[in-house]
Design a protein around this nucleic acid. Sequence first.
DNA 1: TAGGTGATCTTG
DNA 2: AAGATCACCTAT
Length: 189
Amino acid sequence: MRDDVVQIAQDLIGKTLCTDVEGYLCKAKITETEAYRGWGDKACHAHLGITGRNQIMFEEGGQAYVYLCYGIHHLFNIVTNIKGNADAVLIRAAEPIQGLQAMQLRRGELKNQYSLTSGPGNLSKAMGISKSHYGDSLVGNTIWIEEAPSVKAEKIIASHRVGINYAEEDALLPWRFRIKDSLWTSKPK
DNA sequence: TAGGTGATCTTG
DNA sequence: AAGATCACCTAT
């Protein structure tokens, strides 16, 4: 289970992501994830070895790997495997359950409500997740995952990951999962 | 479809 | 010390 990051990514769909940041409690149902495997996956930041940025992925699972992308976006990942196996799941989109006001406050005016928490950069911003949460425990009281009824396999669509053309053939791996017909996902491809 | 944005990694 | 790269977003 914990040694199969792809399975974990699929299982995380439908669960509840919770944050308690700056005095706001926010909860959202996860609608889209991507799996990254440290060993044998060129798209994973860790596949070339340990560096200052990715070292948390080599630690015991259950911690947050947050990093800044394109100078703007804080992307939130969950480290999933045992120490030494650098697997992680990127949370790409979610559906707001609680704390909607705080999310809107953090995101500002939007053209459509669905973009509030759709897309990894947007989601992190709405939930108040930033680099200061790098290495936070996900069983703590700042960021955590709550169990929820699992989503049926036939309602989950697997597709290839996006934005990782440099990964060559690994870019085609169907390691992106999202809820079928959910409006709260980033753009389909 | 292109550009903003800044940490990170690599090279010299 | 500098330059290329990048798991994205928004607007034209």
